[in-house]
Design a protein around this nucleic acid. Sequence first.
DNA 1: TGTACATCAGTGAACGCGCGTTCACTGATGTAC
DNA 2: TGTACATCAGTGAACGCGCGTTCACTGATGTAC
Lengths: 191, 191
Amino acid sequence: MRYEPEHKTRTRDRIVRNAARKLRAEGLRGPGVASVMKASGLTVGGFYKHFRSKDELLADAIAEGFSESGEKIYSSLQNVPREHRWKELVRLYLSPEHCDHPDSGCPVAALAPEMARAKLGVRKRISGLIKDRAERWVEFMPGRTATERQQNFSVIFSAMAGAVSVARILTDPADRQKVLADMQAHLLRTF
Amino acid sequence: MRYEPEHKTRTRDRIVRNAARKLRAEGLRGPGVASVMKASGLTVGGFYKHFRSKDELLADAIAEGFSESGEKIYSSLQNVPREHRWKELVRLYLSPEHCDHPDSGCPVAALAPEMARAKLGVRKRISGLIKDRAERWVEFMPGRTATERQQNFSVIFSAMAGAVSVARILTDPADRQKVLADMQAHLLRTF
DNA sequence: TGTACATCAGTGAACGCGCGTTCACTGATGTAC
DNA sequence: TGTACATCAGTGAACGCGCGTTCACTGATGTAC
């Protein structure tokens, strides 16, 4: 079988997208190469035609997770007036929907401590992705100066990631909800 | 060899303490049974004389992590006047020392997303531990009413855990420091 | 008092299993002559 | 136009390895008679 010129790229993208979901659902050490390939309708053997190592997939899949979840939120904010965008961002990030679906949500909320333990190369790339996210979102953060907006992004982003991470541990749905609601109320009140 | 009556309990405790450290350093899936036993000066085979399964060790080690790190912070607050304790707590939790030493720090900051993915039994136990921690610390949280102090604990705790988790990902020490400092300034200012 | 046996924390080899990675192969299509 | 060969995404079996768990054994001490 010979394929169209873009065939290989599309297959690779499909593998990366499946890995991005599985990683956030099952953790950085969760899905094996075989399971990702199977989810993509392929068999293990073909993996190394697309990636040099599992680490290469990991890094690409994390990047994909950032861009997917970022795009999703970003597009939801398009209809919101600029000065209210950060509030809508807070509501979306701290929603029960986000909390209940880690596999399509923020990679930091789903993987932060595992990212911190990743190999230096992977970690450096993730650091870059977080900085990109910061640069992209500062513009509609609250604050009078650029420095203030940048600080507020740092605070709001890590506070939200923490709240979602903690909420996801709790087994009682009412407790989960409360952690999210308390953080939302706090952020909307203090900025 | 026959041992004193408390010998077995002491050995078990030693294994749990070593696991508690290794877990926070390497993740819930990090250290194997053999490595924990070796760190305790024992060999693999003896493990099941102390634990029914690795999950039992996991649950006990996480509980140990909570009590160790809780005790450490709690004792540091004894000399601080009651109304300033929450501020000192914030400074300690968001210190570079805590950020740089996950293995002796807060289990939530070190393991939150992995805890969320643990088996239901383990997760339930962790939920209980988080609630215990909340009950123990509300008393010196800021706030006029008990409800307010309880909400403030929820916000402050998850915000701090998020900041430390995010900071630990970043490779540039200056960036790490900034995330911690920004969160500290925010919390001390707004409560 | 002396001997035979029970106890039990700890040993170390072995088990089946899933992992990341390698490799000889397939088979449909493009290219050379 | 027809034949021989090259290409290359994908296959599936095999590799060595570390994992959690099991098990027959050890050996110092306590107990029974």
